[in-house]
Design a protein around this nucleic acid. Structure first.
Lengths: 207, 207
DNA sequence: TCACCAGATGAACGCTTGTTCGTTTACCAC
DNA sequence: GTGGTAAACGAACAAGCGTTCATCTGGTGA
């Protein structure tokens, strides 16, 4: 419909959108190609004009979702060091995931299931992401953490950020509020920023 | 085989074991009843002598896995307050999950997918678990956290502990070590205990 | 020895799955 | 108009799914 889009590219994107939502909720095995097609307003057969198969569609969804996170994390590399660069990074990532709440659940599904795409996901996405984080820690002074602990710290942050979104379905059952609502995300962002200050500056105490 | 077991009860337990492993890896939809049966050394039809159906088997697996966690968390309630009670709790939970590494992935699958059992899981398991954690924080002095932040702190701990096991498949790709190996679990345990000291005692700094 | 019964079995069921195929439609260059 | 091409379609396929059922088996108590 849009004159700027070739039409077929727009359809492809709409397929990716619907597939992302369904794959995130039900996983690869739990999602039927027919259901994706119905959400787009197509027939299952039509999807095969845009993707070679279910597996290829799944990997395309993952690749599209993960790409911005890689770029976002790499952007911190050559950046000028301001005192609250980390707070800004946390806010950026939380804002981005807030706009694409399916993404963390999608990645969690793939990670937990150990799918065929997992090795590539580890190499192209998580490894550089963690490497960037560790490099960032090395650049700054870290009074509380030894260098062997850096990977544990970065991994912990990964779990904290992604966990908020991945756990959202059950957390909205336990609490009354929806963790994906803007005010919840903002509250979580401020909480994580406070935690970051603690981990960077505090006195770990005896022991 | 064992004289102490009625035989049928032992078979039931073996079915639960095999189902737990497969459900944790592939989720509910991704696991075939025939595959569970094959791992036990039975035919699919035989499973129906022990469980009414796939859904009932799945819920039985979840209930059996979650029960020890509830009891473990409740044990802290009436306990005498020693200074390092929290460190001991962290160690207990990490040790328990280390012995049952399927459990976190199993729960993650159910949580992410928002399955039919999720509401019950939230009510019977997560809600009391979080309530116990919040009550524990209220009992002690928390110089760094306001009472509205208590739920965020407890949820963060949930993500830190469970995330370590749930993310294990991809972390073993990124790093060389296996996160489920005893030494990795012990390292993570010490890291979390250190983090707990920080969060309980440190100076959050300005801002 | 016999009847009994829980539990294992192979065969079959109805249904859904991913995918393919031949055809039709809609659009664009000439 | 006419030809060509990309994309949507209904129908169909084989394979796999959860589940049922009649039958067989092996052990237990009378």
């Amino acid at each position: 419909m849009s004159a700027s889009e070739p039409g077929t590219a727009a359809t492809r994107e709409r397929i990716l959108d619907a597939a992302e939502a369904l794959f995130a909720e039900h996983g690869l095995a739990g999602t039927a190609v027919r259901d994706i097609a119905r959400d787009v307003g197509l027939t299952a057969a039509s999807l095969y004009n845009h993707f070679a198969g279910k597996q290829e569609l799944y990997e395309a969804v993952l690749a599209r979702g993960v790409q911005p996170l890689i770029e976002m994390m790499q952007r911190i590399d050559g950046q000028d060091r301001t005192s609250d660069a980390r707070a800004a990074l946390i806010e950026d990532i939380m804002k981005h995931l807030g706009g694409r709440p399916h993404l963390p659940r999608l990645i969690h599904h793939e990670v937990i299931s150990g799918g065929s795409y997992l090795a590539k996901l580890g190499r192209t996405w998580l490894r550089p992401l963690i490497a960037t984080g560790i490099a960032e820690m090395k650049r700054e002074e870290e009074p509380n953490w030894s260098e062997e602990e850096f990977p544990l710290v970065i991994t912990a942050w990964l779990n904290l950020v992604f966990g908020h979104f991945a756990m959202a379905p059950i957390l909205s059952v336990v609490f009354d509020t929806d963790p994906l609502a803007p005010e919840s995300i903002e509250r979580q962002t401020r909480f994580l920023q406070k935690l970051a200050r603690m981990m960077a500056l505090s006195d770990p105490g005896p022991g």
